[in-house]
Design a protein around this nucleic acid. Structure first.
Lengths: 210, 210
DNA sequence: ACGTATATCCCCGAAAACAGGGATACACCA
DNA sequence: TGGTGTATCCCTGTTTTCGGGGATATACGT
């Protein structure tokens, strides 16, 4: 009951790892039972350690935090996983939660909230960073940052456009008519409410769509 | 001679600040004399504190680390400044150094090297992260990641292009002929070796030029 | 069985971008 | 003083994109 919560930290930045350690050891009720600088290292160590909560960065050198989360939940579902990132991209957050994460934090989270998040995760609840919360509560309505979803074909076309290919070239690559490519292109412009290809590419890159 | 080196940390992520504190306090010979979460807070505190070395993130909420560095070196040139970032963009590094920084570190730097960097900065030398070093030693030749530099006008035009504006619109905004804008556009395409605007925008965004 | 979404293809005309030249003026540095 | 870089402006012609339509087939869920 009064045991300390064992936390395992995964981040490729030593100073972030140290920072969390320091924050948690100042607080009461936590013990950092280990850490790793990559996804594979984390999985190796977790085979032995088995902490209560894993705090993982989203961007790891060898795999994404999302993949790591999935692995952990598949093999040891009792371990809670909290995502950690600088980015509040909707797709990251949702994919993290879809893969069983107990929450998603931003790296500029204050110490108090970090403690709360870990405690809640430990108790089986889901904690969301307030900023992150604001992202997800509005499905798509008034949220100006909501990203329209693309069909798989549109994604293909968008990527080739960003590569610098013309409608004609894309049509050859995908074995479809250039007119079809043009349709997709125009649908993309319309979906993202942009006027031309330049703005389309910028928007797509800003929202991690490419 | 045997005094501890006083370090001041500027980063908007509490856990990074804590991490560095923890790393430095484990090591011998350092004392963290203060920290700030923004550029303005840093400048305010530095008016009183006056440490030996300032360690600053490049991306701060209110100003860039580069601007902060310039301010510090203008008012208190004896204070050494070290840049700190996740990004190893050439432009960041060079601009940091141009503004008087004593070095540039990546956030995934190991503890030992962090100590070395601070000691060297304290002694008036310049420390560069090994990875960063590899970026700058090759002027532009064999380095595939080298980004051609833009003139200020080209930067303006590039940004407006990425906003979705046409040559005509840009020309009105900048009070120049649309033909001039077109020249800049073509120069950009040529400089970055891309075929069209879409690829230009993608490249620019990939390299933090926008 | 019927709507909805996706993917495909088509047309036309206007607007913009691209290719590939050339030219002038100004500043700055060697 | 002569080169180098930047910024400006111009021309011709071709290719591509954009705007605003319409149309068909397939799949999928209700």
């Amino acid at each position: 009951m009064f045991d300390k919560i064992r936390v395992f930290i995964v981040d490729d930045h030593p100073m972030v790892v140290e920072g969390i350690k320091s924050l948690l050891e100042t607080a009461e009720g936590f013990v950092v039972s280990g850490s790793a600088y990559s996804g594979s290292e984390a999985l190796r160590k977790l085979a032995d350690i088995s902490p209560d909560v894993v705090l993982t960065d989203i961007n790891l050198p060898d795999m994404s935090g999302i993949d790591l989360c999935r692995h952990i939940k598949q093999t040891t579902p009792h371990i809670r996983v909290l995502g950690l990132s600088n980015f509040k991209e909707r797709s990251y957050i949702t994919r993290m939660v879809e893969n069983g994460a107990s929450g998603y934090l931003l790296k500029n989270i204050p110490a108090k909230q970090l403690e709360t998040a870990i405690r809640m995760a430990y108790e089986g609840q889901v904690y969301m960073d307030p900023e992150v919360m604001r992202m997800i509560v509005r499905p798509d309505a008034t949220d100006p940052t909501a990203v329209p979803r693309m069909t798989t074909r549109e994604k293909e076309v968008l990527n080739l456009i960003a590569e610098g290919m013309t409608n004609g070239e894309i049509s050859e690559k995908l074995f479809i008519s250039p007119l079809t490519v043009d349709s997709h292109r125009k649908n993309l412009l319309s979906k993202f409410s942009v006027r031309n290809t330049a703005a389309l590419v910028k928007f797509a890159m800003c929202n991690n769509l490419i």
